[in-house]
Design a protein around this nucleic acid. Structure first.
Length: 554
RNA sequence: GCGCCCGUAGCUCAACGGAUAGAGCAUCUGACUACGGAUCAGAAGGUUAGAGGUUCGAGUCCUCUCGGGCGCGCCA
């Protein structure tokens, strides 16, 4: 029996108690029935705190409430035991073997097992990374690449429509500094103090000069523009290639320049104006964000007629909404948390509901430690650790998995030495190993000509404690996916996979799957092979949501 | 000064307001002539920074204190 089915049973038990007047009348639909795995498995397979929740409403103390409920629940088929515990928890122990009915469900659903419809019909835009095209992607970007993509996967696993978007900041002062730096490097001049000093600047300069030798003959100003544009194109292409290789694919790349050229900025300002939140002061144009919780109003157009960066942000939000997105998600680094209030205010000024139409996820920065010393990340200083570096060291799977298995609001300290040398201790291998191990068992079954798929699956022979635990863990998967989607927290998938891998390894240790030696194939072997295949499927499904591969061999 | 985030085992981190706060690493002890040991079983390790409060119940919510990170421009 699944947790959802148990919840239904509980609800009808409450209804019955109301009808029999053991409970004071309450609206049976007015509360959420939570069924979850007890932390301590000795408490049973599933537990509910329903009695604690509704005891006041029904006019009894929690334990009395629970005792009425279990009188009814205890008669339901499929439960071996239903009992009260602690302050009024109801613990359910499933009848042996009943959990096995899940196996055919998983195998029939295949890669769709775990997918849900909780976000059906919602159209999400998730914007992440959005780096300046003035250098390689660094470690902070890498966290967003992994997490942003995983959130997108989790959202769509719950039925949402998702667009991954990258905002290219290709306009403004930084681009000019970038261009000037490359130009200087090409000419052998010292790079400007406030320019970019990384080694990649020289490399870009060399590539450009080699491909376009005539650039050296241009007038200084013209030459500068040419260097800037060539370098921009090369650097953007590199970011795109690196992200592709990182298994993170964007649906839309929005250029800030194009946003301006297309008239989107004027359109955005018009929308804000129509809602009456613009005003002029000191010769500048302002947005009254303080109406909606910002701590100061913001300038959109400076007194000299130039548009601010904030004007682009504003226009960009309006533009996204006009493209039909219900929810715009932004992943921002902790150093941008000051933007939260102003962006929420932008949504409100545009006539939207900031609690619904815009979501700002703030992630803490990633710190890298090597040999006990913090490695400082500074693009300008040039001693950056790039996405490429990390992938070169540990591989795409380990890098992605490591970055998504923590909630984004915890600052992350990665020990580079540990990551490089102790790759076997990385939990990603633990999970992948479980998958590969199952693949190996199934391969051997094939070699032994055990065609278990031609036999029917008998769940009743699965009575071993480890089998039960594994099956119950498998049953949790859909609710984990739903929770991860609701909270935008893909790390829940990773943590679940580790638990599932652990349950499988324990099962494997305690339950022989294939017949030993010359022993004949019996129903237990068959059933366990089915369990293996179901576990393999769920591991593969979960790893896919993480953007990590599920290897057949390691 | 104002604001946001964080503080959990030696280290890195978990824990929709739920039961005895959990994993991994590190330390110690065990298991196979191997269905893949990249595994499993066990030991040890905690006043969840501190003090109040809210309630059936607080690591989680509220207030204050201490400690750490970050942000507060007609910059981008």
């Amino acid at each position: 029996m699944s947790p959802e089915e148990i919840a239904v049973q509980i609800r009808s038990a409450v209804q019955a108690c109301v009808v029999s007047e053991d409970f004071q009348p309450i609206d049976v639909e007015s509360f959420e029935v939570v069924v979850e795995r007890p932390k301590d498995r000795a408490h049973g397979d599933w537990a509910s705190n329903i009695a604690l929740q509704i005891s006041k409403l029904v006019g009894l103390n929690p334990r009395e409430t629970a005792s009425h409920l279990i009188k009814i629940l205890g008669t339901v088929e499929g439960f071996e035991k239903v009992e009260i515990a602690g302050p009024g928890f109801i613990n359910f122990t499933l009848a042996k073997g009943s959990a096995g009915n899940l196996v055919p469900v998983i195998l029939n659903a295949g890669s769709a097992y775990g997918r849900g419809e909780s976000l059906q019909g919602q159209n999400f835009n998730i914007e992440f990374i959005s780096a300046n095209p003035t250098g390689p992607l660094h470690l902070g970007h890498t966290r967003w690449a992994a997490v942003g993509d995983a959130i997108a996967r989790v959202l769509s696993a719950n039925g949402a429509l998702v667009t991954r978007e990258f905002y290219v900041n290709d306009r403004g002062v930084q681009m000019d500094k970038f261009g000037a730096s490359v130009q200087a490097a090409a000419l052998g001049n010292p790079i400007p103090e406030d320019g970019y000093h990384g080694q990649y600047i020289k490399e870009l300069a060399d590539v450009i000069v080699q491909k376009h030798p005539e650039i050296l003959n241009l007038q200084t100003d013209e030459q500068f523009l040419s260097f800037r544009e060539h370098a921009y194109a090369l650097q953007l292409k590199e970011q795109q290639d690196v992200l592709d290789n990182f298994n993170t694919h964007f649906d839309v790349w929005t250029s800030e320049r194009r946003l301006h050229d297309s008239g989107a900025v004027e359109k955005g300002l018009a929308v804000l104006k129509s809602h009456g939140h613009l005003f002029e002061q000191d010769g500048a144009l302002w947005l009254r964000t303080t109406d909606f919780g910002d701590d100061k109003d913001r300038v959109l157009e400076k007194s000299n007629g130039e548009l601010t960066y904030f004007a682009s942000d504003t226009a960009y939000y309006v533009d996204k909404r006009s493209r039909g997105f219900d929810v715009c998600i932004y992943l921002l680094g902790a150093d941008h948390h000051g933007y939260v209030n102003r962006l929420r205010a932008v949504a409100a000024c545009a006539g939207d509901n900031p609690d619904i139409n815009i979501e700002l996820l703030i992630g803490q920065l990633v710190k890298m430690v090597k040999g006990g010393e913090e490695v400082r990340l500074s693009k300008r200083a040039g001693n950056i650790i790039t996405l490429e570096d990390l992938v070169d060291e540990v591989g795409v799977d380990a890098a992605r998995y490591t970055l998504i298995r923590y909630p984004v609001d915890t600052p992350l300290v990665l020990d580079l030495d540990l990551l490089i040398q102790r790759t076997n201790d990385n939990p990603v291998y633990y999970v992948q190993y479980a998958h590969a191990r199952i693949a190996s068992v199934l391969r051997q079954a094939e070699d032994l000509k055990i065609d278990y798929r031609n036999h029917s699956f008998e769940s009743s022979v699965l009575v071993h404690e480890k089998e039960n635990e594994l099956l119950n863990t498998l049953a949790q998967y859909p609710s984990i996916v739903e929770k991860a989607g609701e909270l935008r927290q893909p790390h829940r998938i990773a943590r679940y996979l580790e638990e599932l891998a652990n349950a499988y390894h324990k099962f494997y240790d305690g339950c022989r799957v294939l017949p030993q030696g010359e022993a004949p194939v019996d129903a237990v072997n068959i059933a366990r092979l089915y369990v293996c295949e179901a576990t393999k499927q769920v591991l593969a499904n979960g790893l896919d949501l993480c953007g990590v591969s599920a290897p057949e061999r390691m």
